[in-house]
Amino acid sequence: MPTTRRYLMCEPRFFAVDYVINPWMDPTKPVSADVAVAQWTELRDTYRRLGHTVEEIDPQPGLPDMVFAANSGTVVDGRVLGSRFRAPQRTAEAEHFRRWFVEHGYRDITMPAKVNEAEGDFAWTGRLLLAGTGFRTDPAAHAEAQEVLGVPVVSLSLVDPRYYHLDTALFVLTEATDAGPAQIAYYPEAFSAGSRRVLARLFPDAVIATAADAECFGLNGVSDGRNVVLPLEATELAARLAARGYDPVHVDISELRKAGGGPKCCTLEIRK
C-alpha cells in the first residue's frame, strides 16, 4: 500500500559536470542545465501527483551536485544525521542542508565526525538501517549512525566502482511494519560475497535486478510502498516489480545520470 512521504529536493539550476568523482562523470561531454532542470521538475511534479509533499532548498552557485539532496542527510523519527562528504568539491553542501533543517524547526541535528554521505549510503527499512561502504562512506560512520539515530545498522560492502553508493545498487520497496517485513530490490553483483549472503538472509524475497537495469540507475528508484519511480530504461526491473503488485512510474533522468545520479539521488526523505 502507498504511504504519503515528505521529500526535500534541490533544483539543478547550477548543474554541470566540471570534475570527476565517480565513473559516470565525463567533463568532455556536453551537459545542459536547462535539460537537467526540466527532468528534475518532472520528477518533483511526479511525486506531487502521487500525493507526496516536496519541499525545496535553494541551490547555490559553485555546487553543481547539490541537486543530489539524498547525500546530505538521513532523517529517522525526526532525528537528523547530516553529511560529511569525501570529495572536497561537495564539502560545502553539508552546511547548507544543516541550516535548512535548523530553519525548519529541527533541533535534534548531528553533524558526523566520520565521512558519511547520508542516504547515498544509508537505506532505512523500517526496522534497521542498511549502510553501504567501499567507496564513499567510512565504515566507522555506520557505528556513528547507530549511536546518533538509535537504530540497528547492518553494514554492506560495495565492490563495483560504478555503484559507488548503496542507493545505486539497492532500494527499499516497502518498509517493515507489524503487518509484514520490508521488501527491497538490489543488484547482487555490486556487493561483496559476504554482503550478498547477508542480503539473501535478511530479504529472501527481494526483487533482483539485471545488469542492464543497474547500469541505467534502475536501483536508484524511489518507492512509496506501491508506486515506484524508476528511470525510463529500467524496463525489466519494472516488469518484475509489476509482477509483485507494484506500480512502476517512469521518469527521464538521462541528463542527471551524466553526473552519476537518478531519482533517489535527487530525493532526501524526511521521516518524522
Results as ranks from 00 to 15, higher is better:
Asp121Cys: 02
Thr53Lys: 14
Pro61Tyr: 09
Val102Gln: 13
His96Leu: 14
Glu93Arg: 03
Arg98His: 14
Val76Tyr: 07
Ala145Thr: 07
Glu147Gln: 15
Thr41Ser: 14
Gly105Asp: 10
Leu43Pro: 06
His104Trp: 09
Ala145Tyr: 12
Leu129Asn: 03
Leu50Asn: 09
Thr46Tyr: 11
Met111Asn: 14
Asp34Ser: 15
Glu42Ser: 14
Arg127Lys: 14
Ala131Cys: 14
Val67Thr: 13
Leu129His: 01
Val54Cys: 04
Gly78Gln: 03
Arg48Thr: 15
Val37Pro: 05
Ala38His: 10
Arg84Asn: 05
Asn71Ser: 10
Gln39Asn: 09
Ala94Val: 06
Asp34Leu: 14
Pro59Tyr: 06
Asp34Pro: 01
Pro61Met: 07
His96Phe: 15
His52Ala: 04
Ser83Phe: 00
Glu147Cys: 13
Arg127Trp: 09
Gly73Glu: 05
Gly126Leu: 04
Arg48Val: 14
Val37His: 08
Arg48Trp: 08
Trp100Gly: 04
Ala131Gly: 12
His52Thr: 02
Gly51Arg: 06
Gly150Pro: 08
Arg49Trp: 09
Ala131Phe: 12
Gly150Asn: 11
Gly120Val: 00
Gly62Thr: 02
Phe122Pro: 02
Ala123Trp: 07
Ile109Thr: 08
Trp124Val: 01
Glu95Arg: 15
Ala113Tyr: 11
Ser72Cys: 14
Ala38Met: 13
Glu93Ala: 00
Leu50His: 09
